[in-house]
Design a protein around this nucleic acid. Structure first.
Lengths: 114, 114
DNA sequence: TCCACGTATTGACCACTGTCGATTCAGCAG
DNA sequence: CTGCTGAATCGACAGTGGTCAATACGTGGA
């Protein structure tokens, strides 16, 4: 868990100074944005995210069935989304509870010209 | 070029009925959204997109230098972005001119809860 | 017609990633 | 302490994707 908790999202708030359509991105900005978008660019993770958002807080064990994926696979995807800062997890007892980080999604939209 | 022109973006306008954070996505919606996001989830393509957006219209030959990529690689990335509907190309003489499709980016933002 | 130039395609290589079975770790109940 | 349960990690596999050299295609000029 120490490792999982050490999952810091590098929450530098905004993902790039300006939006993609306003000015050419630097390599560093492009790499950072691409990293977060890669976390979103997977159908399983998109559905996982929408499942968590639908109920404000979801236990890992309640994700295996709707996603039709094994427990290690679900754990992998939650880790990826958490590293991207899109969800945050809290361990209560034996269960891991996840909730979305709306600010992060908003930052992505802003980077995309929102 | 016929092949390149045949690159249809499956422009079904909106990418999913509702935004990711409003309701659980169906597998089909998730797959479609993930496909478009995959096109964006690459630092080279993000920089390519921003370069095109910065000048409203750009020739392929003017992308190799700023991206520091070979001509086949640039061609590959423009094809991927075009298939995702994010840019559109027009061949004039020997040159291929690209411009962004702002509506497509807006659709992505909407799908992300914009 | 032939040549030069810009672009697209092919083929190959390597790195990365999604997936799962097996295992290990952590917290709770008895 | 022991056993049970939920989650994270490991190891391995298959599939995908970015890259470039080489080649093919198409257009315009000489």
């Amino acid at each position: 868990m120490a490792k999982a908790a050490a999952v810091e999202a590098d929450t530098g708030k905004e993902l790039c100074c300006t939006s993609v359509i306003e000015a050419p991105l630097s390599q560093a900005e492009a790499a950072k944005l691409a990293g977060v978008l890669s976390a979103l660019a997977d159908p399983v993770r998109l559905r996982l995210l929408s499942l968590v958002a639908a109920r404000t807080e979801v236990c890992s064990c309640d994700l295996e069935a709707p996603l039709a994926k094994s427990q290690p696979t679900v754990s992998h995807h939650t880790t990826v989304l958490a590293e991207a800062g899109l969800i945050v997890g809290e361990k209560r007892g034996r269960w891991m509870w996840w909730r979305v980080e709306p600010d992060r999604l908003a930052a992505i939209r802003a980077a995309l010209g929102g």
